[in-house]
Design a protein around this nucleic acid. Sequence first.
DNA 1: AGCCAATAAGCAATATAGTTGCATTACAAT
DNA 2: ATTGTAATGCAACTATATTGCTTATTGGCT
Lengths: 144, 144
Amino acid sequence: MCHHCNYQELLTSVKLETTESRLRVLEVVGNNSFPLSAGDIYKTLERSVSINRVTVYRILDLLVDHGIVERLSTGGRSAYFGLAPNDYHQPHPHFYCKQCGQMDCLNPDSLTVKVESLSKTFPGRIDKVEIRVDGICKNCLKQN
Amino acid sequence: MCHHCNYQELLTSVKLETTESRLRVLEVVGNNSFPLSAGDIYKTLERSVSINRVTVYRILDLLVDHGIVERLSTGGRSAYFGLAPNDYHQPHPHFYCKQCGQMDCLNPDSLTVKVESLSKTFPGRIDKVEIRVDGICKNCLKQN
DNA sequence: AGCCAATAAGCAATATAGTTGCATTACAAT
DNA sequence: ATTGTAATGCAACTATATTGCTTATTGGCT
């Protein structure tokens, strides 16, 4: 995702031992400018290294639990994964193309939401706010 | 969902023939103050009438395609369904409890987003904006 | 009313995404 | 080198949703 990120440091910063597999998964997630599904990540890794599907799922869960990867829902069936917001990387909404399944990051300022007033009155615990725009991407529009 | 809604009329308003099953599915979706999963809807219907699981899925797809029911994604694995926004029923964000899976509707004004500027510059087609708040609901908080 | 065509619903099989339990391997500390 | 702990692999399994095909229902026509 960005030149500020040293993935090894990112792992140690959340007190996770660095392993080959974790680093690989994190690299695939981080080096993409858009979020990927677990399947995408697995297929990408499989091309160059030997890794098990289950390991990918487990590592993704782990990275999400430790807050360095973000799990995003889509209009479709599978979750997508991207680097979690951090100092160099603001929270931002995503666009999901219903036709091709591509998910893209939108500019952080393109759609913003004020959560303060809700936080004050909401009786439960709020962990995150996810904003997703669904539609048809420009490539798919062209093809129709 | 509300006394303004006559489900039969709602069906005909989008040029769908009224069938027993469609009406039943729409009633379950509409009479709930919070969105339900396809499984929830099926289980509810099953208690009183004979209906097939697949029929429920197909009717939900149909109602979503015709714009009277809204498909919502969750932090979890299944989609949830609620009445689609209409004149009496503004678009609104939802809260999803990661622990019990309950999804609730939030006040339409609690979180709002301005989509105009994005629409102007975004090269694809925008169909909807989904805002979901994830966390732990007050009931689950109590239990912990 | 009775028949036909079209549409809806049912049923079984299958697909997809993710999860679990247990065996194996790797690695750090001694 | 040995041992204990954590990570990974493998196979089986679960939950959710979808498909292909059959059967039932409905609405229009004579």
